[in-house]
């Protein structure tokens, strides 16, 4: 069971990472990077690292996405 969950999570992570790099719109690429972090934190839980999972959920996906959106709010006029 864990193996199937890991396979699906890894596929989703790679798909999201490709979206984050390839998409033209900045908002979508930042959102996709946030999804990568969120899914990675479930992966950490399966790799028996709850401490790292919590840090990734709180800091990696939460706070850095928030800071990215604050910056995007200031640079709206550019492509």
């Amino acid at each position: 069971m864990n193996l199937i969950i890991v396979i699906v999570l890894c596929l989703l992570i790679v798909a999201m990472a490709v979206t984050a790099i390839m998409h033209k719109k900045l908002t979508i690429s930042v959102l996709a990077a946030g999804v990568v972090s969120l899914l990675a934190s479930v992966l950490y839980l399966l790799l028996a690292a709850p401490d790292v999972a919590m840090t990734e959920a709180a800091i990696g996906s939460g706070l850095s996405t928030i800071i990215f959106f604050y910056v995007l709010n200031k640079i709206r006029n550019v492509k």
Partner: peptide, 9 residues
Amino acid sequence: IKIIVGFSL
């Protein structure tokens, strides 16, 4: 910004 996103990935 995309460079920074790549860095974080």
